[in-house]
Design a protein around this nucleic acid. Sequence first.
DNA 1: GTCTATAGCCGGATAGAC
DNA 2: GTCTATCCGGCTATAGAC
Lengths: 197, 197
Amino acid sequence: MPKVSDAHRRARRDQIADAALRTFAAKGFQSTSMADIIATSGLSAGAIYGHFSSKQEIMYAVAARILGNRTAAVDELADAAELPTPGEMLSAMLRGLDHDLSDTQLLLQVWGASASDPEMHAVMLDVVGRLVDTYRAYLVRWSIRSKDMDEASAAAFADRLVPTMLGLAQGYIVQRALFPDFDGEQYLAVAGELLPR
Amino acid sequence: MPKVSDAHRRARRDQIADAALRTFAAKGFQSTSMADIIATSGLSAGAIYGHFSSKQEIMYAVAARILGNRTAAVDELADAAELPTPGEMLSAMLRGLDHDLSDTQLLLQVWGASASDPEMHAVMLDVVGRLVDTYRAYLVRWSIRSKDMDEASAAAFADRLVPTMLGLAQGYIVQRALFPDFDGEQYLAVAGELLPR
DNA sequence: GTCTATAGCCGGATAGAC
DNA sequence: GTCTATCCGGCTATAGAC
């Protein structure tokens, strides 16, 4: 049980996670040392271990936040009265990544870590699972409204399309993070033309 | 200059790279220790450092090989007399990944490492650059032959489509590596329907 | 070229004062 | 809750014999 206010605890955890996020993005999960996080956060070892029990826990917290950022973007539009087209949905989900590369780079780190760390894998599946659910529900509603599908064919349509749309998003992320000359606008334009509308 | 035959040197390097590849895929680049590679390869520390000057060099060699495996698949079909459709090309490029997850998992590791290690980034860009060139040349020829485009519009068409097609491939890789229930056949079927044909 | 053994370093986590 | 100081383990890379 907290000895200071919950708000303070929350703020400290965020301060630590923020510092960790910056160093993780710059140096990678594994090459970031606790000393790096300590220096960047302006706190001390003792302070940090009072809020996180290990470096791994910090990694998982950062990963969940980064993944959550993407779902937040989708959640907003999925409930809008004016349903966007699949192409617009894709753009909305990804546009937030362009201003700051940190999230994009970290997503690659999270994927890489998930391939060999079961706990990271579980964290990732949990957050992405919610994103997929939202996406799927949106596609069902969109195809019913805009394509006059009945419930059953809309569900089948969404089940088929979700992985491929998600794949387009993942490809965008890889290229945004790694290709110096990546043209995100063009990528999204082409994707929008390929996707149903 | 080698004191034994080039073939022997090559074989030893491959033996080391094979062992490293297996441990890298299982534990990740950074969590794999030289002791792991030593144990898996059946060689000794001295033997390994006689062929690679550092663990990083082993990583780069493995990365280049893994990426090269994908380009090899594309190279084969790009020169065929019977040009495949874009959807078939995508399938051909990715189908080799399904039997053994090692390559798929390692691709995620390579992407993650490329985000923070400039040398890995350079290795990756070099190999992927060749793949992109091949892909682009194929798309130019396909659109000329099957779509009756002139040279200029074929080039523009290919420039626009290559990143998105590559993105579909990258999405496939992420999901194959990380999603337990991933249905690769369906993914490729949907992608094939979206792509021009 | 390959082995064994080890040097030398660095990183995560803790102890104990405040 | 937070600080400083430090312990301990594990890691990469090398030394030196064969």
